[in-house]
Design a protein around this nucleic acid. Sequence first.
DNA 1: AGTTTATATGAATACACTTGAATACAGCGC
DNA 2: GCGCTGTATTCAAGTGTATTCATATAAACT
Lengths: 105, 105
Amino acid sequence: MNTLEYSAEVLKAIAQPTRLRIIELLRDGEHCVCEIFPAIGHEQSNTSRHLQVMLKSGILMQRKEGLKIFYSLRHPEVLEILRLAELVASREATERSALFNRKPV
Amino acid sequence: MNTLEYSAEVLKAIAQPTRLRIIELLRDGEHCVCEIFPAIGHEQSNTSRHLQVMLKSGILMQRKEGLKIFYSLRHPEVLEILRLAELVASREATERSALFNRKPV
DNA sequence: AGTTTATATGAATACACTTGAATACAGCGC
DNA sequence: GCGCTGTATTCAAGTGTATTCATATAAACT
């Protein structure tokens, strides 16, 4: 896999609403699955799958402690990517609403 | 669509190898479809579809000039996102190869 | 009018993703 | 050993995506 495909893989691991929620949750440090899935309002199985996707793409790491498994972010750049995406998205949103609300010619 | 879903939409528009290639092509300014699809080695129709995806997500803009349509990047942040993704990807790549090459315990 | 050129779109195919329910697995305590 | 708890995985259904081929559109030119 070349760098381009690898980059796409990393971005794809981030580019999903449920996973974005998880990443935001992990912003303040590690959390176990038992904390994550109620917080994001999804089934445990679904949450676990999203965590596996991010783990395999390399943006998360895990630490086992007894029965629980704690996940955390591995690269601070992921938070920066999220910040920039939100910036672009919010700019888009305001421009589109301005376009929608402006008087017809 | 809330900000989180919008952010995911923006990231999804970037998170694809062919589209990453197009974005890198547009780094130095606008290009028409007729320049883009030979450069990336895909069908014209396929290229057009990827451009539509990025146009609708808001990360590209278009300018018509006669028969040609020129596409360009609308947000410099997209290049920054790409840079960070490549950084994470390359770090992953080196760590994985190190893991792969190290002696077994 | 018709022709050519550049781009977009419809239709079909194949593949990947998301989800909840059910099930399997793994570590702990009894 | 057994049951309990936290995670992962399998299954099935529904949805979305990437691609190609063929066709449609739209602008320029004769």
